[in-house]
Design a protein around this nucleic acid. Sequence first.
DNA 1: TCTTGACCTCCAGCATGGTCGAGGTTGAAG
DNA 2: CTTCAACCTCGACCATGCTGGAGGTCAAGA
Lengths: 154, 154
Amino acid sequence: MSKLPEMLTIGQVAERSGVPHTALRFYEDRGLIASVRTAGNQRRYLRSVLRRLAFIRTAQRVGLTLEDVRDALAQLPDNRTPTKSDWERLSRSWKSELDARIDALYRLRDRLTGCIGCGCLSLRSCALQNIDDEQASHGPGAPKLKPVGEGGTD
Amino acid sequence: MSKLPEMLTIGQVAERSGVPHTALRFYEDRGLIASVRTAGNQRRYLRSVLRRLAFIRTAQRVGLTLEDVRDALAQLPDNRTPTKSDWERLSRSWKSELDARIDALYRLRDRLTGCIGCGCLSLRSCALQNIDDEQASHGPGAPKLKPVGEGGTD
DNA sequence: TCTTGACCTCCAGCATGGTCGAGGTTGAAG
DNA sequence: CTTCAACCTCGACCATGCTGGAGGTCAAGA
């Protein structure tokens, strides 16, 4: 009990999480995970880091940047094990992120579907050209495309 | 008619498409768009490049890489104006890409939703930890996370 | 004690998707 | 013909998200 039996080495964390040790150091550097050091300066991790890593990897699948994830994880307490409601809060905000992305994809797909067979080769009428036409009502002469800007509440 | 009246300068394309001229040269470099040169080595674009740019920008919103887009656009004829059916083919293949992505997001969201209130702090039961459990049936001791790998038919 | 593998730091490099600036040319208006 | 914005190339640089190597240290087994 006095020997911190639950601490994991970086190798163990890498193996159990599937995240390369290089990425683990990288994440630590970016403030996404934390470790304590042994007297010999080696990293030791709490088991809870595995949960954080799962969270990080899943978040990346959703398309969030590491910075997004870091900000999200910053809501979790560093000094105590996160409670269920801590995670609930995060999960809920994630869910809306997902909802927003799904929604955006839907809108894109629907435009595209409408585009098939719409004779869409006219610059003035093709939905693809006027992807943002909900807010924009620019004249038909020179449609401006919005810069891409992936990320955020699109 | 003999002076190619429909050709656009890079500045005009940049303005009309909203794509910076730096990006236009970048896209050309990567083989996504093409130009012809004047006697003085300046780029001149066909109007159809605006359509390609719209396509490119939209594709990026969906999360496709420039390489994906280049491959898709490679299906279009370089030497003639794309016909409706050329675009239809592209649009259709895009649509399934979108469908796949929407589907993936749905599955993620559903897991997450299930996670809220599931008491998900158990490494063994949390859907987040076992995000890939359809194919994986690893023992409960050391769940491996899949590397992220964004892109492809996920 | 020796050996060996796991660990450490730091730094360079890769891929993607660009931007920016230097230094030089073009082309159209006046 | 002059002028000057717009164009050209090339190479450096930025951010993100990592990987890999060099060179050195730590720790546990034989």
